[in-house]
């Protein structure tokens, strides 16, 4: 279990992480989302004892990372930046790490096979491709067979085959009951793997919720798509209920302000035929985009405060945005 409490990190004037509090539950894949520069990597470095927090604490299994007596057995970590000497072979890199904990050579061989690096393990890491480098990083993270795994942007720069490999690996780790804390700026990966989400923007917590709730929250203002051979009387009937209709493709209507149930019942009451009645699903990606719009560190100048206020998100999401003019 990872617990972060009131965690802040300042680099001079710049606030990279701002009063973060959250808990990573054991045995679950938790996604750590945020735009580039939101403070995800810094938060992970603080958890892993590489950086010192300016305020607050981060603990792993109840203790600061620095106080763990056998850290590789408790947390495995893959950092975004490479953490391997390019002049050493993959095998020797893993061996040197294993030796700090008295982990036997047989385990080094085991993790090499687990990540599929047998053929290049004796070659110098300097010649590794990005994908091979990530695999080596994962091997290092799994050396101590830890119950908790922290991965920073594991899919970054990988080809489709590598991304599929990472995805399967994460599922495997989760199926074994491991706690997985996984950062990404790409939603699609999260949608596939994560159960719970922690969303940050500009160093602050934006959401701490499960994936379904997060999407539902962002879908609150989403329209319902309706197709009918009698669009005009339908639009009138819906307008009477307070709905707002906009024409869409194939003669369909986008109805705002009413639920699918309300629209169906209204159509029945007026004996109007419906060919389609579909609540528009907001993808995790859309939800993330709208929620973090104001938190992107270097956003385009044309994103005005009015636009962000109009996204109609839950108060949890809107609060930090409103208080932070650019």
């Amino acid at each position: 279990m990872i617990e972060v409490s009131g965690l802040s990190k300042h680099y001079g004037e710049r606030v990279a992480v701002d009063d973060l509090t959250f808990t990573i539950r054991p045995g679950v894949v938790t996604g750590f989302l945020g735009p580039n520069g939101a403070g995800k990597s810094t938060t992970m470095r603080l958890i892993l004892g590489l950086d010192r927090p300016t305020h607050g604490t981060a603990t792993v299994n109840g203790r600061h990372y620095r106080d763990l007596t056998a850290p590789l057995h408790e947390v495995g970590a893959l950092l975004e930046a490479r953490a391997v000497h390019t002049g050493r072979s993959g095998y020797n890199h893993l061996l040197a790490l294993a030796q700090t904990h008295g982990i036997p050579r047989s385990r080094v061989q085991e993790v090499i096979e687990l990540v599929g690096l047998e053929s290049v393990a004796r070659k110098r890491v300097g010649g590794f491709s990005l994908g091979m480098g990530q695999r080596l990083g994962v091997a290092a993270a799994l050396l101590g067979d830890p119950a908790t795994v922290v991965l920073d942007e594991p899919a970054n720069g990988l080809d489709p085959e590598g991304i599929r490999w990472i995805r399967n690996l994460l599922r495997g780790l989760a199926a074994e009951g491991r706690t997985v804390f996984l950062s990404s700026h790409l939603m699609s990966e999260m949608e596939q793997t994560a159960e719970h989400l922690i969303v940050i923007g500009r160093g602050r917590l934006i959401a701490d919720t499960d994936v379904a709730t997060f999407v539902a929250q962002a879908s609150a203002g989403a329209p319902v798509r309706v197709r009918s051979p009698q669009p005009t009387p339908l639009a009138e009937a819906l307008a009477a209920l307070g709905g707002r209709c906009e024409p869409s493709d194939q003669g369909a209507l986008q109805v705002y302000g009413l639920t699918a149930e309300q629209i169906g019942e209204a159509a029945a009451a007026h004996q109007l035929v419906l060919h389609e009645l579909t609540p528009v699903q907001v993808s995790l990606e859309d939800a993330f985009m709208s929620i973090t719009k104001d938190s992107v560190e270097y956003q385009h100048a044309d994103a005005s405060p009015e636009q962000t206020a109009a996204t109609g998100l839950g108060s949890e999401a809107a609060a930090p945005a409103a208080g932070a003019p650019r």
Binding site: G27, A70, H73, H101, T179
Partner: peptide, 17 residues
């Protein structure tokens, strides 16, 4: 395999730096 609950792994006494 379905997860059998959170994995627990307390390092043994000889597993230390």
């Amino acid at each position: 395999a379905a997860p059998a609950g959170p994995m627990v792994r307390n390092p043994r006494a000889d597993e230390r730096v």
